[in-house]
């Protein structure tokens, strides 16, 4: 790297990488080579042991609903037309816990349910991890 190297904010670069891979249908988490811990959101060091020796790993597309909320009162104008919408807290199989949006049929939503990663809904204001309550629906999203 030369003296004209540009300053790169590591955190922003990590966040961007995860967002970009999300659009391709993959949810990337980090795995520590020292303590084997996995985590999300991204950070330069393992939040469990402090090691900087880690690697990216593609998370399982399956998870379990740790919790959820159905938003009826939107925080701002850009979300208002989408209410009610569901925010899910998902324990990804074998890795980390992430927050995402739950789309598709959701009448019987409950904690502990299986969820599947789907391609982000392009009508939603932002690109976010997106899950469905059935494998079939996730596959078609």
């Amino acid at each position: 790297m030369g003296s004209d190297a540009v300053y790169v904010d590591e955190s922003i670069a990590f966040d961007r990488f995860v967002s970009e891979r999300l659009l391709q249908g993959a949810l990337m988490v980090q795995e520590c080579r020292a303590c084997t811990g996995t985590w999300h959101p991204p950070s330069g060091r393992c939040p469990l042991c402090g090691s900087a020796n880690w690697e990216w790993r593609e998370a399982s597309v399956q998870g379990e609903l740790y919790s959820f909320t159905i938003v009826h009162h939107a925080p701002s104008a850009s979300f208002k037309e989408h209410v009610p919408y569901i925010i899910g807290w998902v324990e990804l199989e074998g890795s980390a816990r992430v927050l995402g949006c739950i789309v598709g049929v959701s009448d019987a939503i409950r904690v502990g349910q299986r969820v599947w990663l789907a391609t982000p809904d392009e009508t939603f204001p932002y690109v976010v991890p997106t899950f469905c309550l059935s494998r079939e629906e996730a596959g078609t999203k």
């Binding site: 967002s19 959101p41 938003v71 925010i87 927050l99 932002y126 976010v128």
Partner: peptide, 8 residues
Amino acid sequence: VFETPLGP
């Protein structure tokens, strides 16, 4: 990045 865009 991982919360605000979900609209909470």
